[in-house]
């Protein structure tokens, strides 16, 4: 059985002029445990919405998302939160680190709502991403590359079955982007996590043996709506 199965997924938003515009319309998409897949698509094609639907942050209008045997649409919001906390790691383009917390605390928060805080694991993950000497630093005291490495450590903290990465190298220079991408893929392999990475950068996409185009998957007519 696939780790992630999507069938007839549909999500639409109301535009400022009152129209209902479909943003995601995916008839079928599957991901096996440990798979690493890159999803491409130009800006505004609903890539982030697609990831948010998989993460259970957004609820689909129709269709079915099954993650690790759990059908998201049939779950309450609290159950989706619980599933996300225990089974999903999320890496954002803008890192989304909590500025008031240290690196170590940010990583601890990545597991606090799921399996529970484990300081040793948080410390070893930060050491693994090369920030063992920055445990008590706050995000603003780090470079952008270092911040993304903290975000990677946080996403892997809860030993997720699936890591969602939304343009994780979009804010990094080419050298840092290559390092970050390699780190994400290595860590996912080490932890046995599947990876679904969204990017529109051809260099990033070319690193993945399996690539999907959301434009191809998405049957919805796009009107340039960015949710």
């Amino acid at each position: 059985m696939a780790l992630l199965e999507i069938e007839n997924l549909r999500k639409a938003f109301r535009t400022p002029d009152g129209r209902i515009a479909p943003v995601v319309e995916v008839p079928r998409f599957c991901l096996d445990a440990g798979d690493q897949v890159a999803l491409s698509g130009p800006s505004g094609t609903g890539k982030t919405t697609f990831l948010n639907l998989i993460a259970g942050i957004l609820a689909a209008d129709s269709g079915r998302i099954t993650l690790d045997g759990h059908e998201l649409n049939a779950m309450s919001e609290a159950d989706r939160d619980r599933l996300r906390a225990g089974s999903i790691g999320y890496i954002f383009q803008t890192f989304n680190l909590l500025q008031g917390f240290t690196c170590l605390e940010n990583v601890l928060l990545g597991m606090s709502f799921g399996p529970g805080a484990d300081r040793d694991r948080a410390r070893s993950l930060l050491e693994r991403v090369g920030l063992g000497d920055r445990l008590d630093y706050h995000p603003r005291q780090l470079s952008t590359g270092q911040q993304q490495r903290v975000a990677v450590a946080r996403a892997l903290a809860n030993r997720p079955k699936l890591v969602l990465a939304d343009e994780p190298t979009g804010n990094l220079d080419p050298a840092n982007a290559a390092q970050a991408l390699a780190l994400i893929r290595e860590l996912c392999t080490e932890e046995g996590s599947a990876l679904l990475l969204v990017s529109h950068d051809p260099t990033v996409l070319s690193a993945f043996p399996r690539r999907e185009s959301l434009s191809a998957l998405n049957q919805a007519s796009r009107k340039g709506i960015a949710p």
């Binding site: 942050i57 919001e77 609290a78 939160d81 996300r84 906390a85 999320y90 909590l98 500025q99 709502f113």
Partner: peptide, 16 residues
């Protein structure tokens, strides 16, 4: 608002 959204994205429930 953003910090709260990040916490929710990390799995924090509304009640938390």
């Amino acid at each position: 608002r953003r910090d709260l959204a990040i916490l929710r994205a990390l799995g924090a429930r509304r009640m938390t």
